[in-house]
Design a binder for these strands. Structure first.
Lengths: 258, 258
DNA sequence: CAGAAGTAGGACGTGGGACGTCCTATGACT
DNA sequence: AGTCATAGGACGTCCCACGTCCTACTTCTG
């Protein structure tokens, strides 16, 4: 089933006690890399790993849990453990926690997030302005059109818009990171009580300006449009009435223990 | 194999099930956020958490291990568990794994890393050119001076140089990310067998050009200097004889990652 | 009294086993 | 041929014991 052949004995020299756990995760990663297991490939069972490395199943499970947290492996209950894709979703917990706990003011916490996004998108947009396929424009226009219609779809269209541009540049890592920042920014903003209501018309207009610059393949204009867009987001953030992280907030989930 | 159906079923079960572990990690994070525990603050013991949340110590340990992998908590054997700072070091494993397993060619795997670094540093350097404290220049010059002397310290000075600039911009997240990318790039390069030998003189010269632009507070010149710097790194990478990840690799001495 | 050595206790680390839950594949049944 | 029941495998959770490490307190000694 979800088992793969296991022949090589991973047992090696005795390692220091404190580094045991870390050593196990490293051993598992090496297994994936050396065997060139692609994302989705089945991993050995926990029992196999325990036997092969020479530790208990408990230790293996803890190591695997750590790898799961990083998206390096994917666990399916009752089926098996598989190689993960190490996508950026794995970092959401990390980045959201960081945003919640770092810095002194809520606005300052969000600033870093926005700033990195702006830097990456500025550069990505420049590259896309220089070189992109014609069909990109149509897709972007469609997103802008969706933004013009009010409703919850505006946010979705917004995310899609930015993702389309970042994807067009062809750098997977940069694209995933910008998506990650978008998601975490939004999550943080929501938790803080939400920003001031966005002007739908203004949002669409800013995005349209980016598209126009891309059509003209005008790098500088594109960069300027991106900056203006982020200026507006910052302005909106500043106007938002934030409550604060960890405050009592309207939660609906039935968590009994408190 | 009906792909859509299969995927859908899997998704549902995954969401519905396997929520136990995720619920525990979430609960622990909430505990930190709600109590506003700063990095370094002691966490409740595993036994306390187990009792408080109502699960076994094993489950707590697995959840804590996952949080440790993200740098959200820090575990000290025999002493206790503490709130972590969620620094970027936690992402090294993630990013290195990603670099090792994604993409088709080794050069392509490194490209994304370098590209993101270039984008961030370009923008950060622009900002620093616009506004920076005068003492920065002296520190940068010192780094360049160290680069001129051959030896393993060149790489250290190189990293420091870039970190100084990124720190000056004042965006912690961006600064940590560029440092992360630098480290992972270097680690990946080393594992692949190292790049072509860097021209020490050339490296120092490129960095000096950046400093000169900063002194003149010339944004465009600074950006151009950064681009030239990365062009050189790319050229060197392309000329490198890479073995491949997971291969038997030769030991190499210090090399500059850029 | 002050400092060093020893000790007790707490907290994490590891191991082993048992049982529950979930998934898939196989084979019987209609 | 299609559907359903079942068996087996694999992960999920739990319990309990013991090892290792660290801290703080106690005790001993000069």
């Amino acid at each position: 089933m979800a088992t793969c052949q296991w022949t090589k004995d991973l047992r090696e020299t005795v390692v220091a006690r404190a580094q045991r756990s870390e050593e196990i995760t490293k051993r598992i990663i090496d297994l994936i890399v050396e065997r060139r297991l692609p994302p989705g490939a089945p991993m050995p069972t926990e029992l196999s790993l325990a036997e092969a490395i020479g530790v208990s199943r408990n230790s293996i499970r803890e190591a695997v849990k750590a790898l799961q947290a990083l998206g390096i492996v994917e666990i399916r209950h009752g089926y098996g453990t598989f190689v993960g894709s190490a996508g950026s979703e794995a970092l959401q917990t990390w980045l959201l926690f960081r945003t919640r706990t770092r810095g002194t003011t809520d606005a300052g916490r969000l600033r870093d997030l926005l700033e990195v996004r702006e830097m990456l998108e500025t550069e990505l947009t420049r590259r896309v302005a220089r070189d992109h396929r014609p069909e990109l424009i149509g897709r972007l226009e469609a997103c802008v059109a969706r933004m013009r219609r009010k409703g919850p779809d505006v946010a979705v269209a917004d995310r899609e818009f930015h993702d389309l541009i970042c994807a067009e540049a062809g750098f997977d890592l940069a694209r995933e990171l910008t998506g990650l920042f978008w998601d975490v920014y939004r999550a943080a903003e929501t938790e803080l009580g939400g920003p001031a209501a966005a002007s739908v018309a203004g949002t669409a207009k800013r995005h349209q300006a980016i598209v126009d610059a891309l059509v003209r393949r005008d790098e500088d204009a594109a960069e300027a449009a991106v900056h203006r867009h982020f200026d507006e987001v910052r302005k909106r953030a500043k106007a938002g009435r934030y409550g604060g992280f960890g405050e009592a907030r309207p939660e609906i989930s039935g968590s009994a223990a408190g």
